[in-house]
């Protein structure tokens, strides 16, 4: 199972870490780029709340300070997911994934609603503890195969990656991205500020899509 996401079209060299653009990674990369650009150019929406028992409604307005900080976090999140999409190195991928987890908390950390902050806190705990299996998996990859480069792993000449390492990698990504246990994330998405909140869900879906490729090689 050599080239799952297609043949690498272009390989960018960062010393020992190759960044490769196969049709799959380039698609994911471009999507991350598109949404990051959208987060940069769009202003936050004003969330409408209906006042109970009447026709009145209120809109929530995000202050400029809060908007600036959240936009910064959204851009950081976008950059981290772009990096995670194209990197060709397992350890580097786990680092970018950990960064996605942190920026996801940052995006909603500025929201005033206590409900959202509670959910973000729970999510933060999970994201924090998920780094243990995540980096543990990278260490197992290195110890069992002697290499961290996905391109080398995909060649099939190295020893097979132990199933445990793959499972640890997946659960680490699941913890960072909260892929199936979406309850906490769904609560976080009630926060106003659509362009930034979307980066949360986009980044976690993207890292999940990428880890699907990573575990299938090697």
């Amino acid at each position: 199972m050599g080239s799952l996401g297609g043949i690498p079209l272009y390989v960018l060299e960062f010393g020992d870490e190759l960044v490769y653009f196969s049709p799959y990674t380039i698609t994911l990369f471009l999507l991350a780029l598109t949404f990051t650009l959208l987060a940069i150019v769009s202003r936050p929406e004003r969330q409408v709340d209906v006042a109970f028992g009447g026709d009145a409604y209120t809109t929530k307005i995000i202050s400029v300070d809060e908007m600036r900080f959240r936009r910064f976090m959204a851009i950081a999140c976008g950059l981290a997911s772009m990096g995670a999409m194209v990197t060709g190195d397992v350890f580097n991928f786990t680092l970018f994934t950990a960064m996605v987890g942190i920026t996801n908390v940052g995006i909603v950390a500025a929201v005033k609603s206590p409900h959202v902050q509670d959910a973000a806190y729970q999510y933060g705990l999970v994201a924090l503890s998920a780094t243990v299996p995540l980096f543990g998996a990278a260490a197992l990859y290195a110890a069992a195969t002697g290499s961290l480069s996905m391109i080398e792993l995909a060649k099939g000449t190295l020893p097979a990656v132990p199933l445990v390492a793959k499972a640890l990698l997946v659960i680490g990504v699941v913890g960072e991205g909260m892929a199936p246990f979406y309850a906490a994330k769904a609560e976080m998405f009630r926060a106003p500020g659509a362009p930034y909140v979307i980066m949360c869900s986009l980044s976690s879906l993207l890292i999940f899509l990428r880890v699907a490729e990573v575990v299938m090689i090697g």
Partner: peptide, 24 residues
Amino acid sequence: SLLIIFGIYMLHKIVEHAFGLSSG
């Protein structure tokens, strides 16, 4: 690659999400 098609399929979630949240 089948992975690309299903990657796009999953990203349709984000589209729905953005559709819903962008209007307020």
